[in-house]
Amino acid sequence: MVTVFRALDDQTRRVILDELAASDGKTLFEICSILTTRHGLGLTRQAISQHLGLLESAGLVVTERRGRSKFHYFNPVPLSEITRRWPITERND
């Protein structure tokens, strides 16, 4: 769970997750383009690749290779494990 919190501790990684949650199955090129055009983030492909690697090691992103392309998908399971640990309860204040 520590790796999930560390992965979420960066604004760029949260933006990447937001974009993958909105539309799954993007290549590194597509992610780079979206971050530049929609969010004004001028990061190198290497920097974005490192962010994706950290998200993948935290289990928040899974990948699939098809030919020479690698597609990235959002995986919400680690986030649901957090909500199971600390469930939201209604308060009657």
Rank of each mutant, 00 (worst) to 15 (best):
L43M: 12
H39E: 03
D10T: 00
K70P: 04
I88L: 12
L35C: 07
I16Q: 12
S23M: 10
V4D: 00
T89V: 12
F5S: 01
D18F: 08
R6H: 01
L28T: 04
E56D: 14
I88Q: 13
T89M: 06
T83H: 09
G53I: 03
S80A: 07
S80Y: 11
L41P: 02
P87E: 12
K26M: 11
H39Y: 14
N92E: 08
H72V: 09
K70Y: 00
N92T: 14
S69E: 15
L28H: 08
R66W: 01
T37M: 04
S49H: 15
C32A: 06
T3D: 01
L55N: 08
R84F: 03
T12W: 03
D18C: 13
D24A: 14
D24E: 14
Y73L: 13
E81C: 10
S57D: 14
S69F: 03
L8M: 04
P87D: 09
H39T: 07
T44P: 07
Y73A: 14
E81L: 14
L41F: 12
T44V: 02
A22Y: 01
S49M: 07
Q50R: 05
D24G: 10
K70S: 03
D9H: 02
G42K: 08
W86M: 07
A21Y: 04
R66G: 03
F5R: 06
R6W: 03
G53W: 04
R14Q: 13
N75E: 11
L52V: 14
R85A: 09
T89P: 07
S49V: 02
I48D: 08
M1T: 07
P78M: 15
P76A: 09
E64A: 12
W86S: 06
P76L: 06
P76H: 01
E56N: 14
L28Q: 10
H51E: 15
R68N: 11
T44Q: 05
I16S: 02
A7R: 00
L79G: 11
L35R: 06
E30I: 02
F71H: 05
L35D: 02
H51A: 13
L17N: 00
D24W: 00
A58D: 04
